[in-house]
Nucleic acid binder design. Sequence first.
DNA 1: AAACGACGCAACCGCCGTGAG
DNA 2: CCTCACGGCGGTTGCGTCGTT
Length: 240
Amino acid sequence: MKKGEWSAEEDDKLRTYVQKYGHWNWHQLPKFARLKRCGKSCRWRWMNYLRPGLKRGNFTEEEDALIIKLHEQFGNRWSTIAKSLRGRTDNEIKNHWHSQLKKSTKGDEEEKCSSWQSEATQNENICEGEAESNSIDHMTLGSSPPSSPSPSSSSASMSSLNAVGRLEDTRFLIWKYMKLKAVEISGVNPLLQTIHHPWKRVALSCHCLKTICTVTILLICFVDCGHKIDFRPFDADTMY
DNA sequence: AAACGACGCAACCGCCGTGAG
DNA sequence: CCTCACGGCGGTTGCGTCGTT
Protein backbone atom coordinates (compact mmCIF):
# COMPACT_ATOMS: atom_id res chain seq x y z
CA MET A 1 0.00 0.00 0.00
CA LYS A 2 1.51 3.26 -1.12
CA LYS A 3 1.74 6.27 1.21
CA GLY A 4 2.95 9.82 0.96
CA GLU A 5 2.61 12.38 -1.78
CA TRP A 6 0.14 11.75 -4.55
CA SER A 7 1.56 11.79 -8.07
CA ALA A 8 -0.16 13.49 -10.98
CA GLU A 9 -0.84 10.08 -12.45
CA GLU A 10 -2.58 8.90 -9.30
CA ASP A 11 -4.62 12.08 -9.15
CA ASP A 12 -5.66 11.54 -12.72
CA LYS A 13 -6.71 7.96 -12.09
CA LEU A 14 -8.74 8.89 -9.04
CA ARG A 15 -10.35 11.91 -10.67
CA THR A 16 -11.26 10.00 -13.79
CA TYR A 17 -12.73 7.13 -11.84
CA VAL A 18 -14.80 9.20 -9.43
CA GLN A 19 -16.11 11.45 -12.16
CA LYS A 20 -17.13 8.43 -14.17
CA TYR A 21 -18.47 6.09 -11.48
CA GLY A 22 -18.76 8.18 -8.34
CA HIS A 23 -17.46 7.17 -4.93
CA TRP A 24 -19.87 4.37 -4.23
CA ASN A 25 -17.47 2.63 -1.85
CA TRP A 26 -14.18 4.16 -0.80
CA HIS A 27 -12.90 0.87 0.50
CA GLN A 28 -13.37 -0.86 -2.84
CA LEU A 29 -12.53 2.11 -5.01
CA PRO A 30 -8.71 1.76 -5.07
CA LYS A 31 -9.01 -1.73 -6.46
CA PHE A 32 -11.29 -0.67 -9.30
CA ALA A 33 -9.40 2.53 -9.98
CA ARG A 34 -6.11 0.61 -10.01
CA LEU A 35 -4.62 2.64 -7.23
CA LYS A 36 -2.20 1.26 -4.66
CA ARG A 37 -3.76 3.36 -1.96
CA CYS A 38 -6.11 2.66 0.89
CA GLY A 39 -9.71 3.81 0.63
CA LYS A 40 -9.26 6.43 3.27
CA SER A 41 -6.34 7.95 1.43
CA CYS A 42 -8.38 8.08 -1.78
CA ARG A 43 -11.28 9.65 0.03
CA TRP A 44 -9.03 12.22 1.64
CA ARG A 45 -7.40 13.11 -1.67
CA TRP A 46 -10.71 13.52 -3.41
CA MET A 47 -12.43 15.44 -0.65
CA ASN A 48 -9.53 17.79 0.05
CA TYR A 49 -7.85 18.25 -3.28
CA LEU A 50 -9.52 16.87 -6.38
CA ARG A 51 -13.18 17.55 -5.67
CA PRO A 52 -14.61 20.15 -8.06
CA GLY A 53 -15.38 23.56 -6.69
CA LEU A 54 -12.54 23.73 -4.23
CA LYS A 55 -10.99 27.12 -3.80
CA ARG A 56 -7.23 27.16 -3.49
CA GLY A 57 -4.99 29.97 -2.40
CA ASN A 58 -4.90 32.45 0.42
CA PHE A 59 -7.80 33.03 2.73
CA THR A 60 -9.44 36.40 2.45
CA GLU A 61 -9.93 38.68 5.43
CA GLU A 62 -13.64 37.96 5.26
CA GLU A 63 -12.98 34.25 5.42
CA ASP A 64 -10.62 34.72 8.35
CA ALA A 65 -13.18 36.75 10.22
CA LEU A 66 -15.85 34.17 9.52
CA ILE A 67 -13.64 31.30 10.66
CA ILE A 68 -12.85 33.06 13.89
CA LYS A 69 -16.47 33.84 14.50
CA LEU A 70 -17.56 30.29 13.75
CA HIS A 71 -14.75 28.86 15.85
CA GLU A 72 -16.00 30.84 18.80
CA GLN A 73 -19.40 29.33 18.17
CA PHE A 74 -18.55 25.75 17.27
CA GLY A 75 -15.05 25.18 18.59
CA ASN A 76 -12.95 22.66 16.71
CA ARG A 77 -15.83 21.29 14.67
CA TRP A 78 -14.02 21.98 11.43
CA SER A 79 -16.47 20.22 9.20
CA THR A 80 -19.27 22.38 10.56
CA ILE A 81 -17.20 25.48 10.01
CA ALA A 82 -16.27 24.34 6.51
CA LYS A 83 -19.94 24.19 5.52
CA SER A 84 -20.10 27.95 5.87
CA LEU A 85 -17.07 28.57 3.67
CA ARG A 86 -17.80 27.57 0.13
CA GLY A 87 -14.85 25.93 -1.57
CA ARG A 88 -12.85 25.39 1.61
CA THR A 89 -12.29 22.00 3.20
CA ASP A 90 -12.28 21.23 6.88
CA ASN A 91 -8.65 20.19 6.63
CA GLU A 92 -7.67 23.42 4.95
CA ILE A 93 -9.49 25.47 7.56
CA LYS A 94 -7.96 23.44 10.35
CA ASN A 95 -4.46 23.95 8.96
CA HIS A 96 -5.10 27.63 8.46
CA TRP A 97 -6.35 27.96 11.99
CA HIS A 98 -3.35 26.27 13.52
CA SER A 99 -0.84 28.10 11.36
CA GLN A 100 -2.32 31.59 11.17
CA LEU A 101 -5.39 32.37 13.19
CA LYS A 102 -4.85 30.52 16.43
CA LYS A 103 -1.90 32.65 17.37
CA SER A 104 -3.91 35.71 16.48
CA THR A 105 -6.67 34.95 18.91
CA LYS A 106 -6.44 33.44 22.30
CA GLY A 107 -3.94 30.82 21.34
CA ASP A 108 -1.12 32.90 22.60
CA GLU A 109 -3.09 34.80 25.15
CA GLU A 110 -0.62 34.12 27.86
CA GLU A 111 2.30 35.30 25.84
CA LYS A 112 0.60 38.50 24.79
CA CYS A 113 -0.80 39.00 28.24
CA SER A 114 2.61 38.78 29.78
CA SER A 115 4.04 41.22 27.28
CA TRP A 116 1.24 43.58 28.03
CA GLN A 117 1.65 43.23 31.72
CA SER A 118 4.89 45.14 31.61
CA GLU A 119 3.24 47.85 29.57
CA ALA A 120 0.33 47.87 31.95
CA THR A 121 2.43 49.17 34.73
CA GLN A 122 3.28 52.16 32.60
CA ASN A 123 -0.36 52.85 31.93
CA GLU A 124 -1.82 52.23 35.33
CA ASN A 125 -2.34 55.86 35.99
CA ILE A 126 -4.89 56.18 33.21
CA CYS A 127 -7.28 54.01 35.18
CA GLU A 128 -7.81 56.50 37.94
CA GLY A 129 -11.09 58.28 38.63
CA GLU A 130 -14.60 57.42 37.51
CA ALA A 131 -16.64 57.36 34.31
CA GLU A 132 -20.12 56.44 33.25
CA SER A 133 -19.94 53.99 30.42
CA ASN A 134 -23.38 54.74 28.97
CA SER A 135 -22.33 58.17 27.87
CA ILE A 136 -19.47 56.97 25.73
CA ASP A 137 -19.96 57.51 22.01
CA HIS A 138 -19.63 54.43 19.83
CA MET A 139 -19.93 52.28 22.88
CA THR A 140 -22.90 50.03 23.46
CA LEU A 141 -23.56 47.74 26.35
CA GLY A 142 -24.81 44.28 25.63
CA SER A 143 -26.15 41.81 28.13
CA SER A 144 -24.80 38.58 26.71
CA PRO A 145 -21.95 37.03 28.60
CA PRO A 146 -18.68 36.47 26.79
CA SER A 147 -18.19 33.11 25.22
CA SER A 148 -14.52 33.21 26.00
CA PRO A 149 -13.13 32.36 29.37
CA SER A 150 -13.67 35.03 31.96
CA PRO A 151 -10.97 37.57 32.48
CA SER A 152 -8.23 36.71 34.85
CA SER A 153 -8.87 39.52 37.27
CA SER A 154 -12.44 39.24 38.45
CA SER A 155 -13.37 42.32 40.37
CA ALA A 156 -10.46 44.35 39.20
CA SER A 157 -11.40 44.72 35.57
CA MET A 158 -14.93 46.08 35.92
CA SER A 159 -14.01 48.29 38.77
CA SER A 160 -11.11 49.52 36.74
CA LEU A 161 -13.39 50.21 33.82
CA ASN A 162 -15.80 52.09 36.01
CA ALA A 163 -12.94 53.74 37.67
CA VAL A 164 -11.60 55.05 34.45
CA GLY A 165 -10.67 58.69 34.55
CA ARG A 166 -12.49 61.60 32.94
CA LEU A 167 -14.45 60.29 30.02
CA GLU A 168 -12.89 62.06 27.07
CA ASP A 169 -9.41 61.68 28.40
CA THR A 170 -9.98 58.04 29.02
CA ARG A 171 -11.48 57.36 25.65
CA PHE A 172 -8.70 59.21 23.96
CA LEU A 173 -6.15 57.24 25.87
CA ILE A 174 -7.86 53.98 25.01
CA TRP A 175 -8.01 54.88 21.32
CA LYS A 176 -4.48 56.06 21.30
CA TYR A 177 -3.27 53.00 23.08
CA MET A 178 -5.23 50.66 20.86
CA LYS A 179 -4.14 52.39 17.71
CA LEU A 180 -0.54 52.08 18.66
CA LYS A 181 -1.03 48.42 19.34
CA ALA A 182 -2.93 47.96 16.10
CA VAL A 183 -0.16 49.49 14.08
CA GLU A 184 2.41 47.50 15.95
CA ILE A 185 0.52 44.28 15.52
CA SER A 186 -0.55 44.84 11.95
CA GLY A 187 3.04 45.13 10.92
CA VAL A 188 3.46 41.54 11.97
CA ASN A 189 0.14 39.97 11.13
CA PRO A 190 -2.54 42.15 9.61
CA LEU A 191 -5.30 39.57 9.80
CA LEU A 192 -6.50 39.54 13.33
CA GLN A 193 -5.11 39.78 16.78
CA THR A 194 -6.48 39.20 20.20
CA ILE A 195 -4.71 41.12 22.83
CA HIS A 196 -5.10 41.95 26.47
CA HIS A 197 -5.47 45.42 27.65
CA PRO A 198 -3.85 45.89 31.02
CA TRP A 199 -7.14 46.30 32.80
CA LYS A 200 -9.66 44.42 30.72
CA ARG A 201 -9.95 41.73 28.16
CA VAL A 202 -9.79 43.05 24.63
CA ALA A 203 -10.23 41.50 21.26
CA LEU A 204 -8.87 43.59 18.47
CA SER A 205 -9.21 42.81 14.82
CA CYS A 206 -7.43 44.84 12.23
CA HIS A 207 -8.81 45.10 8.74
CA CYS A 208 -7.69 46.81 5.60
CA LEU A 209 -4.08 47.20 6.46
CA LYS A 210 -2.64 48.30 3.16
CA THR A 211 -1.62 51.46 4.88
CA ILE A 212 -1.53 52.32 8.50
CA CYS A 213 -3.91 55.22 8.07
CA THR A 214 -6.71 52.95 6.91
CA VAL A 215 -6.67 50.72 9.93
CA THR A 216 -10.14 49.96 11.11
CA ILE A 217 -10.57 48.39 14.47
CA LEU A 218 -13.24 46.23 15.94
CA LEU A 219 -12.68 46.37 19.62
CA ILE A 220 -14.57 44.20 22.01
CA CYS A 221 -14.00 44.52 25.69
CA PHE A 222 -15.18 41.77 27.97
CA VAL A 223 -15.65 42.80 31.52
CA ASP A 224 -16.06 40.52 34.42
CA CYS A 225 -19.66 41.45 35.19
CA GLY A 226 -20.61 39.57 32.05
CA HIS A 227 -21.37 42.63 29.94
CA LYS A 228 -19.88 43.02 26.54
CA ILE A 229 -18.80 46.45 25.55
CA ASP A 230 -18.56 46.83 21.85
CA PHE A 231 -16.77 49.65 20.10
CA ARG A 232 -17.57 49.57 16.38
CA PRO A 233 -16.82 50.66 13.81
CA PHE A 234 -14.11 53.01 14.69
CA ASP A 235 -11.55 54.74 12.64
CA ALA A 236 -8.54 55.31 14.76
CA ASP A 237 -7.40 58.20 12.62
CA THR A 238 -10.35 60.31 13.57
CA MET A 239 -9.01 60.31 17.08
CA TYR A 240 -6.05 62.40 16.05
C1' DA B 1 27.33 29.23 1.97
C1' DA B 2 25.91 26.15 5.50
C1' DA B 3 23.28 25.05 9.51
C1' DC B 4 19.39 25.56 12.01
C1' DG B 5 14.73 26.57 13.38
C1' DA B 6 10.09 28.08 12.28
C1' DC B 7 6.35 27.62 9.52
C1' DG B 8 2.79 25.88 6.24
C1' DC B 9 0.49 22.31 4.34
C1' DA B 10 -0.38 17.65 2.62
C1' DA B 11 -1.27 13.45 4.39
C1' DC B 12 -1.98 9.87 7.82
C1' DC B 13 -3.93 7.84 12.08
C1' DG B 14 -7.19 6.54 15.26
C1' DC B 15 -11.56 7.15 17.21
C1' DC B 16 -16.49 7.47 16.84
C1' DG B 17 -21.14 7.25 14.85
C1' DT B 18 -24.16 4.90 11.89
C1' DG B 19 -26.40 1.51 9.35
C1' DA B 20 -26.81 -3.09 7.53
C1' DG B 21 -26.93 -7.91 8.39
C1' DC C 1 -29.11 -6.57 20.76
C1' DC C 2 -24.50 -7.54 18.74
C1' DT C 3 -20.99 -7.27 15.31
C1' DC C 4 -18.78 -5.49 11.52
C1' DA C 5 -17.75 -2.41 7.74
C1' DC C 6 -17.61 2.00 6.33
C1' DG C 7 -17.50 7.02 6.28
C1' DG C 8 -16.59 11.16 8.70
C1' DC C 9 -14.03 13.83 11.71
C1' DG C 10 -10.35 15.93 14.44
C1' DG C 11 -5.64 15.39 16.12
C1' DT C 12 -1.15 14.68 14.78
C1' DT C 13 2.89 13.89 11.95
C1' DG C 14 6.27 14.53 8.42
C1' DC C 15 8.34 16.95 4.89
C1' DG C 16 9.49 20.83 1.99
C1' DT C 17 10.36 25.70 2.03
C1' DC C 18 11.88 29.91 3.73
C1' DG C 19 14.13 33.07 6.79
C1' DT C 20 17.72 33.90 10.07
C1' DT C 21 22.17 33.46 12.09
